[in-house]
């Protein structure tokens, strides 16, 4: 087994097994992953040093990470495309709490709040709640009037919105989420206009005189030439 395979094993082994969160979210495995291919993204030496500093810190406790894992899974339950675990949403939240420190207080306070709420309503900690109890709490805080200012809403509603935002962005910027969304770019190709069926759907067409100004893609590899006619 090569090193990359062993990392995959750690990640997959942790799915569905709350006790293995250290393996999934712990500092050491994140550092290993970073040192492999995961986070090679064209950094300068200063940027690498900054990332390393963040990776060496741990913000959430393992209990908090388990709570987040449960919350994010209910916000976005797994489907045939993937799960928040495939998308490493909780790892992203841990990282962003260090990268954007102003997230730290609200995120932590919200986790405290949901445990207090679980206790007062059901005499259990949040992690012990069954699905129906979780939904009861989420239904209290999960919705808002989009015409309102978020900052005017109760803190638990704001907190839930923050966690929902991070869950959504974490999932839909992941490999599985981007596939589910249907984004098809970021790869070499040739743009030759809006597909005809899409133009038809919106009752649009390209003007002939505009198209005359556009590249005939069958000539794109031909070296450009101009005549010397004055163009102005």
């Amino acid at each position: 087994m090569n090193r990359r395979d062993s990392i995959k094993t750690i990640t997959f082994a942790s799915i569905g097994a709350g006790l293995l969160l250290e393996g999934c979210y712990g500092i050491s495995s994140e550092k290993i992953k970073r040192s492999l291919t995961r986070y090679e993204y064209g950094r300068t030496p200063d940027e690498i040093a900054y990332d390393d500093k963040l990776f060496a810190q741990k913000f959430f406790t393992n209990k908090e990470l388990s709570d987040l894992d449960k919350i994010c899974n209910v916000i976005l339950p797994p489907n045939e495309f993937g799960s928040i675990r495939d998308a490493e949403v909780v790892q992203l939240i841990e990282f962003m709490a260090k990268d954007i420190p102003s997230y730290q207080d609200p995120l932590r306070k919200g986790l405290d709040w949901i445990n207090e709420e679980s206790n007062s309503k059901f005499s259990k900690s949040f992690i012990e709640l069954d699905d129906n109890s979780v939904k009861q709490i989420f239904d209290e805080i999960g919705f808002y009037d989009p015409n309102s200012n978020m900052s005017d809403l109760p803190e638990p509603v704001q907190w839930f919105n923050l966690v929902r935002n991070l869950t959504m962005t974490g999932y839909f910027t992941s490999e599985v989420g981007i596939k589910e969304l249907g984004y098809k770019g970021n790869m070499p190709n040739v743009w030759d206009g809006v597909p005809q069926d899409v133009l038809d759907q919106y009752g649009l067409k390209y003007d002939e005189d505009w198209l005359e100004k556009c590249i005939d893609q069958s000539t794109r590899m031909t070296i450009a030439e101009w005549d010397d006619e004055a163009t102005y």
Partner: peptide, 28 residues
């Protein structure tokens, strides 16, 4: 149809208000 990056999916359904739906957020 831009490439998703950090921030994609924030306030995912706040445009509901443009359809007279005064409820956004949710889960699932």
């Amino acid at each position: 149809l831009g490439a998703p990056s950090y921030g994609t999916g924030f306030n995912v359904n706040s445009f509901n208000k443009f359809f007279g739906i005064n409820k956004a957020g949710g889960y699932g």
